[in-house]
Design a binder for these strands. Structure first.
Length: 418
RNA sequence: GGACAGGUGGGUGAGCGGUUGAAACCGCCGGUCUCGAAAACCGGUAUGCCCGCAAGGGUAUCGAGGGUUCGAAUCCCUCCCUGUCCGCCA
């Protein structure tokens, strides 16, 4: 949520930062917001004066009513007039505030100043295998661990079915990742609801703008597109004790996304699906700590790929290329030699106070101090389908079998899927 | 799903339609006392918005949103949530 006070205090600065996102419609939106904010303040001032008048009168009337057993009709009429005026102005104000909020919810987060104009690869790890070999869907189909037609029969395209060692592999990855993050990175494991209320989706920024991308149930609950949604909102409307920050949560959930993608190369196999599993990392910290926290968080996601011995690279996304709510995003891309692509298996973002404002998550550094908004961050740690794709393609053998990386062997229960 | 009972500040818990942001207790912070601590005592302890450089002032908030009224924590309506019993069920 945009900071209206900041917009008021330094409109030039706010506009310049948002302009980098390259959306020309934003300027007009900000104009409207500024005008509404102005109206709101004028009206609020008027109303407060009238209400002060009413409160003073009510106190006097209370005494009079008690001693005289009632109020003169003239007084009652006068008070009623004042009351009616207040009611009228209040409904006007309410309408302005509703409109203002509706518009404000469509303003994206301001990118941090160190976000580049072009996507930039920052570092890479491991030695990518030469492009070649089979794509993961061919490997998996041959091994009988992936059944795309079965998924299509049940729910349509984009709903893969994992079978046998494939299902086992998915479960192994989930357990491996959760163990890593909870035991070595200090995260608290959470299993949240997979359906959430509308306001929860608004809190993290999926709504109101991206309603078309998410699934909604008939009783107005939404299937989570990521665990970020329920886990970040865990602390909505709270004032956290600043001395306990930062805190981190790790959550496994399925994720549901409609995002209608055209059929074709990118939608083949496991690369883009409507339902997938993911272990998500969410962190809450004080504002001053968030840049360092973002690096730490990204490192936690990287650790997964290193343990799995999957070559990857880290890129900082360009200013016009990352999500609505994010202020800065790193993508982790694992190399998949079969399809010959770097696959985005994790996105690591800092949201500064954008989500905290929407979800009203604050902290107090010391008792008695004014509460301030926390900063929220999250990263996939990591998403399963593309990781499985990279894993299968990287470790495929000439005989069609797939070698399991040592870190995963105890979880899969075998060192090779054949 | 059906029937009741409830939702008050960090917690417990009072509150007749009228100077109630709200008693009391607990907790927390500061102070006195002490070599230090405990105990005791004293004081302070919500958040948003608006005005103001500040000091401060105004206003709103008793689950949420509407309504009645000169005036609502208190009355009415809708919704949300919690508890208990019944039904159903992994």
């Amino acid at each position: 949520m945009i900071d209206l006070k900041l917009l008021r205090a330094s409109p030039g600065q706010v506009r310049a930062a948002l302009a980098r996102r390259g959306d020309p419609a934003l300027t007009r939106l900000l104009d409207e917001i500024e005008a509404l904010d102005m109206k709101r303040r004028t009206l609020t001032a008027q109303l407060d004066t009238l209400k002060a008048e009413r409160n003073d009168a009510a106190k006097a009337d209370a005494l009079a009513a008690k001693s005289q057993g009632g109020l003169p009709a003239a007084i009652v009429a006068e008070r009623k007039k004042l009351g009616d005026r207040i009611t009228a102005l209040e409904s006007e104000l309410r309408q302005i505030e509703t409109t203002l909020e509706a518009k404000a919810l469509f303003v994206p987060n301001s990118p941090l100043s160190d976000v580049p104009d072009e996507v930039t690869v920052l570092r890479s790890w491991g030695t990518p295998a030469p492009k070649g070999g089979k794509p993961h869907w061919e490997i998996a189909e041959k091994l009988g661990i992936l059944d795309l037609p079965a998924g299509a029969k049940l729910a349509g395209s984009g709903f893969p079915v994992l079978k046998g060692q494939g299902a086992r592999l998915a479960r192994a990855l989930i357990n491996f990742m959760l163990d890593l993050h909870t035991r070595e990175h200090g995260y608290t494991e959470v299993e949240p609801p997979f359906l959430v209320r509308r306001e929860v989706m608004i809190g993290t920024g999926q709504l109101p703008k991206f309603e078309a991308d998410v699934y909604r149930t008939t009783d107005d609950l939404f299937l989570i597109p990521t665990a970020e949604v329920p886990v970040t909102n865990l602390h909505r409307d709270e004032i956290l004790d600043g001395t306990t920050l930062p805190v981190g949560y790790a959550a496994y959930t399925p994720c549901f996304r409609r995002e209608a993608g055209a059929a074709g190369k990118d939608t083949r196999g496991l690369l883009r699906v409507h339902q997938f599993d993911k272990v998500e990392l969410v962190r809450f910290c004080r504002a001053s700590d968030s840049p360092a926290e973002h690096e730490k968080l990204t490192g936690h996601a990287e650790a997964v790929l290193r343990r799995l011995e999957l070559p990857y690279r880290v890129a900082v996304l360009a200013v016009n290329d990352f999500g609505f709510a994010a202020a800065k995003t790193y993508d982790l891309e694992a190399w998949a030699p079969g399809v010959g692509q770097w696959l985005e298996v994790s996105s690591s973002s800092t949201f500064t106070d954008f989500q905290a404002r929407r979800a009203n998550i604050r902290c107090r550094s010391r008792p008695g101090e004014k509460p301030e908004f926390v900063h929220t961050l999250n990263a996939s740690g990591v998403a399963l389908p593309r990781t499985i794709a990279a894993l299968l393609e990287t470790n495929q053998q000439p005989d069609g079998s797939v070698v399991i990386p040592p870190a995963l062997v105890p979880y899969v229960g075998t060192d090779r899927i054949a």
